[in-house]
Design a protein around this nucleic acid. Structure first.
Lengths: 357, 357
DNA sequence: TTGTACGCGTTATCAT
DNA sequence: ATGATAACGCGTACAA
């Protein structure tokens, strides 16, 4: 008989539940629950006993059931669209730290390129009983109305929302202004023919802003904008990656137009670009200047080091967390927080020698 | 009265459930459920009507409740320890594709550095009703017994398990052998003093294997192993990153020992290393050769291009998926799959000129 | 084809 | 301090 009971228990590899633990301990399920969740109303000894049984039985509580019951989980989520954009890594790291400080748990969630980030947000918010969400990456220009579906606090970090509605919380640099700054810097070096590698032609996010800043700077300095010096990423193929930087630069080089400077709108693109130029026998910065954007390690440790606009990632992440938590806890209104980018001059740019490439 | 009902509905921003939808449509909950889950037994018209109501009411089904009911979700998970190791990105991408092909859904889950990957696996397996798990990264040497807790199929991909138990499924290159290969290549170039940058001294994973392969190659060629030419990562500080490569190389340079080649055990480390050497006025490969490992884009597009051992990432990912699915579906036994690494010679290595650094 | 009612595993509210 | 029991929102037998 006893052996039978034993057998029955062991066979039950299906899934062991809180009830099984309760039975084994000869207590009620609520006592087990209290033991697991550090509730005050429980005898320390029974608690210890229960935890021991849990330990050796290998019981794992079902999070789905927990979330189902739970009204609030004191949790937020970070939704990342475009993983592989290594710039987000730093942000996420700091965001996680800040959450810990505030004793929030933090769900990191990838969003596929073809998924709607709003839908995903809605889903996990429901599933995990979130109090708020941070959006990293993605294209928020179209989502003016869409954003209205979000009934909880959220912050766009390093993302541009087409609606420059002040009621949308966001933290970022002013990509337009910073891009203008970079272009002006290149112009200041004497460059007249500045090629640019930028996001897809259809982009409505930061890619567009950076292109716009570039155009405006050219305009303000009386340089005509030349569409042939613009190289757009190809849909579903290119990203802010080394590979794309390399490929797109080759494209540029095979074109008829010449240039003395190349503005790659991310540091990763710039690395690939420099390699492509190098293979074509074009030396950076002597024959051609190259500039990046973001201030990532990729540009700091490459040779030559890449002139860039540094986004203060840590500060942005901290401000993002601050803003989100104050919206959650103190019911503060959404606001737009802008950080200043920093032009970092390294070895990839120099005075134009008007040596046509 | 009517207005009251209306009000009541709108106020209920708490959370709208399947019942609310059912009421609004004047149908039962099961009909709504059928409409959402593409069940056959439903009138196309009522289905259409219901979906429309769902759409405009902004109803989002609660995944927790779903998972709770669901016995099986036809899903697997990929657990990644050490995000930021960009090498994993390629793997994940292919893994996701393979899952789609097999009509499995795929959960991507980060594991923090201080978390036990086994615990996490157990938790999400329970929560999401997984059929299997892929482990990327992490230290599996200690977990010989621990692994026994996993009652479902799993595959270690690009990870080394100390237990060279054949009953543990794994897909990877032979890090020991490949590291030997790389070291031998450097020796073949005439280098006698080969420094190495490697994982923490306590590492029991691939870092250890790569170091061991290096030592063995030296030994086989009659070169004494010199502990002072080994630079270990510092705990909780270093990673396979540019920054660490840079920092650790500086350390090496400030030591008393000289070397004519530097073997950085990842391409990212190598990039940082080359920068550090460059800043010290040491030219690669003329004054010092540098080799990496992994075959990542970082080494392909850097200048100089980095000599490396390419791990066939796509093949590894595909084989990982194959193995996992055949264990799940066909009850196949776990096995160890080894891929051959490919020595790719680029510009960062050259014949030793015995010019002491 | 559709609706009713039960149960999934947990936590929270009661009594005790 | 502890145990019984009612939710939580959904899927699904089963009845209609």
């Amino acid at each position: 008989m006893k052996l039978n009971v034993q057998e029955k228990d062991d066979n039950k590899l299906s899934t062991i539940t809180i009830k099984d633990i309760a039975k084994k301990c000869h207590v009620g399920v609520s006592t087990v629950s209290r033991a697991m969740n550090d509730h005050p109303d429980i005898n320390p000894e029974t608690k210890k006993k229960i935890l021991k049984v849990i330990e050796k039985s290998g019981y794992v509580p079902d999070n789905s059931a927990r979330n189902l019951k739970r009204i609030d989980a004191r949790a937020v989520a970070v939704l990342i669209k475009g993983i592989g954009n290594t710039f987000f890594n730093q942000l996420v790291e700091v965001l996680e730290q800040e959450c810990q400080k505030e004793r929030y748990s933090c769900v990191i969630q990838r969003v596929e390129e073809d998924e709607n980030e709003i839908d995903v947000a809605l889903q996990v918010a429901r599933e995990k009983k979130l109090r708020g969400v941070v959006f990293l990456g993605g294209n928020f220009s179209h989502s003016g109305e869409e954003l209205g579906r979000l009934k909880f606090p959220y912050v766009l970090s390093t993302v541009y929302s087409g609606e420059d509605n002040k009621r949308i919380a966001s933290v970022s640099v002013d990509d337009y202004k910073e891009s203008y700054k970079m272009t002006e810097y290149l112009l200041g070096l004497g460059h007249k023919k500045i090629a640019i590698i930028t996001a897809r032609r259809e982009d409505e996010s930061i890619g567009k802003l950076r292109l716009l800043g570039y155009q405006k700077a050219l305009f303000d300095h009386g340089i005509p904008f030349d569409e042939e010096l613009v190289c757009y990423m190809k849909m579903n193929v290119d990203r802010y990656s080394y590979r794309s930087g390399y490929k797109l630069t080759k494209e540029l080089l095979s074109g008829k137009k010449t240039f003395t400077a190349l503005y790659a709108t991310s540091d990763t693109l710039a690395v690939g670009a420099i390699r492509a130029l190098w293979e074509a026998g074009i030396h950076v910065p002597d024959d051609c200047s190259v500039a990046g954007f973001d201030g990532m390690d990729a540009g700091k440790y490459s040779i030559p080091g890449i002139t860039t606009i540094r986004q203060p990632a840590k500060e942005i992440a901290r401000a993002t967390a601050d803003l989100l938590f104050s919206m959650i806890d103190k019911k503060e209104e959404p606001k737009r927080v802008i950080f200043e980018g920093e032009l970092i001059v390294r070895e990839s740019t120099g005075i134009s020698r008007i040596k046509i490439v």
